[in-house]
Simulated assay, not measured.
Amino acid sequence: MSSRVLCAPLPSVPFLFLLLLAAPGARAAGYETCPRVQPNMLNVHLVAHTHDDVGWLKTVDQYFYGVKNTIQHAGVQYILDSVISALLAEPTRRFIYVEIAFFSRWWNQQTNATQEIVRKLVRQGRLEFVNGGWVMNDEATTHYGAIVDQMTLGLRFLEDTFGTDGRPRVAWHIDPFGHSREQASLFAQMGFDGFFLGRIDYQDKQLREDSLEMEQVWRGSTSLEPPTADLFTGILPNMYSPPQNLCWDMLCRDNPVVEDPRSPEYNVKTLVTYFLKLATNQGQHYRTNHTVMTMGSDFQYENANLWFKNLDKLIRQVNAQVSVPTLW
């Protein structure tokens, strides 16, 4: 999954971000585009994303075009426009996208030149599709036939458009209200390597954090011979939102990163200290030395520059806290 990786000596700070990507213009497939990680450090994966409901308070067209923003401010066409521009501005930036119902509509409105630019971003792993269904389907009241149909529709679009470069390797159900064993079984049989959940009962989450069971291999079926329906499953730490005080979208109110020490608003030292403590505490709920921070939320990144500019600053300032040189 596309992320920018922060590493720290275990179990203490300082931290080191590693920004290791396929070289711009190079062709790499699948996991070859992932940043390298350090086995003896805490690896914090910053995942830039937007959660775009395909119908909720507004219709699909209203969400896509940004109509009736008095009901909810959302314009998916502008999100995709802005994200692509931000990725092109800085080659270390990465982004994941989920809802193919919106992406395919946006794609069909682009010029051939823009489409080729996006293909290159996908090829380099800088724009990655996760889940890949037409929508992020419900799990409680859906029929398996409808799930298969809508996943087929989205995955077929990605295959026809990007070939194997666009193949999602991770299932991403961050917002359904409840989860079913059969959904995990279906995803395993579809060939996904992992499955990430966001919204779970708070009591369940607390128990999993205390017992270090935020990650597991889910056996989705008792009738299918293992490992046919086995799937690595992870629970995201903040449902799917950014950590508190680290939301830099136009819809958020958190303070930006101010690097200039001459400014009365200078806040880097405080922010970096807070981030290091937050990451260390979060990592203690997982058995491995990997943890995720979801940097995005509902219909965010309409002005992607706000998010990426502050993430770039955070990465730069955390890197400056250690003497180990950044590896490229």
Rank of each mutant, 00 (worst) to 15 (best):
F177T: 09
L186I: 09
R181M: 15
E213Q: 11
L197S: 04
E213V: 05
D193E: 15
M190E: 04
Q206V: 11
M214Q: 02
A188S: 04
F196V: 08
E215Q: 11
D175G: 01
L197Y: 04
D193N: 14
F192Q: 02
L186E: 01
F187R: 12
D210A: 15
L212I: 15
Q206K: 14
G198V: 01
F195I: 05
L212M: 13
E182W: 15
D175H: 03
P176W: 00
D193G: 11
G191I: 05
G191A: 05
I174R: 00
A184D: 03
Q183F: 12
S180V: 00
I200G: 03
E209H: 11
Q206I: 12
F196C: 09
L207Q: 12
F177L: 13
F187V: 06
I174T: 06
H173V: 00
E182N: 14
S180T: 09
S185V: 05
G191C: 06
D201R: 08
F196W: 15
L207A: 12
Q203T: 07
E182L: 15
F177R: 12
R208S: 02
D201I: 03
Q206N: 13
R199F: 01
K205M: 15
S211T: 15
P176N: 01
E215R: 07
S185M: 12
D193T: 09
G191Q: 08
I200V: 12
D210H: 13
E209Q: 15
F187Y: 13
S185C: 11
D210Q: 15
G194H: 09
F192T: 03
D193M: 11
Q183T: 12
A184L: 07
Y202G: 01
Q183S: 12
H173L: 05
R208P: 00
Q183K: 08
Y202T: 10
E182C: 12
A184N: 06
M214V: 04
R208D: 00
M190N: 04
L207G: 13
Q206G: 12
D193Q: 14
I200E: 05
M214T: 02
F177K: 12
E182Q: 14
I174F: 02
F192G: 01
R208M: 05
I200R: 05
Y202A: 08
R199Q: 03
D193P: 05
G194D: 11
M190A: 07
